[in-house]
Amino acid sequence: MLAYVARRLALAVGTVFAAVLITFLLVHAGQGSPGAVKAGAGASAAEIAQANHELGWDRALWVQFADTIGHLIRLDFGTSLIDGRDLGHDLFTRLPVTGSIALLATLLSGVVGVVLGVTAAVRGGRVAQSINSGAGVALSLPAFWVGILFVYVLSLQLGWLPATGYVPFADDPVGWITSLLIPILTLAVGGAAMIARTAAVGMREALQQEHIRTLRAMGTPTWRIRYVHALRYASVPVVSVLGIQFIALFGGSVIIENLFALPGLGQTSQIAAAGHDFPALISVVVVATAVVVLTNLLLDLVVAALDPKVRTA
């Protein structure tokens, strides 16, 4: 078990390293240079060269890469080329925004998805078919379009929720959750669809297991067969997909944050990409990869804990 965790940790570190390497290489493969960005539009070639020299851009590639890695290990993310803000501090304030959207959306998808999926598996027939087709449509809808739809209905027509903007939790917890509700709902549409499909397949498979027949032969009440035994059996695939969903929603929040003007990682990565802010790009990639990798690690442990075969091994 310990060796397994160690191996997984090594892989996790390797993944983050690979992400940095890929981004680093891409940045250097492009025509732009950080000096040009920093010096701004209309700067002369000499000014740009001077800025590049100050940023160390003219050093050997491997020296620069070692330098980048060295700083990242010390959790020093550097400063933005555009406005000189401290990127470490910036990420620190933005991560919770994206994290809470993704986490709450995952939880909501989980609850709604499991209810729908279990209903589909238990009821079968037309109910299952409608849930399955509904999930198929929900999975095909672009999230940003769904988001606009929610704004139109919940905010413009009904006036229940604010259309955009973000209220920090510390300022006003109720305002915080209302400001996040439409983004969360938006993300949860596709998430719930995915979970519903997984849960339906898992439950259907669970209910066909031989041990379910043993339980029926013992006169076990139907609710116990379904909601204790079959659901427990289906929990392993459902939890795995929940983890994948968290990762997907974390990435998907890039677009949602831009739609709803939320100050999260997605917003900063869009700005960084548009402005060719290389240090900001690398820092966002590092943080996002770390989140993905840690989620996967945690997921593996949870799935192992759920499965007696792994747990008792």
Binding site: A19, L265, S269, V285, T289
Partner: peptide
């Protein structure tokens, strides 16, 4: 596969 696609 463990890379965050959109951000990358």
């Amino acid at each position: 596969m463990a890379l965050p696609l959109i951000i990358l």
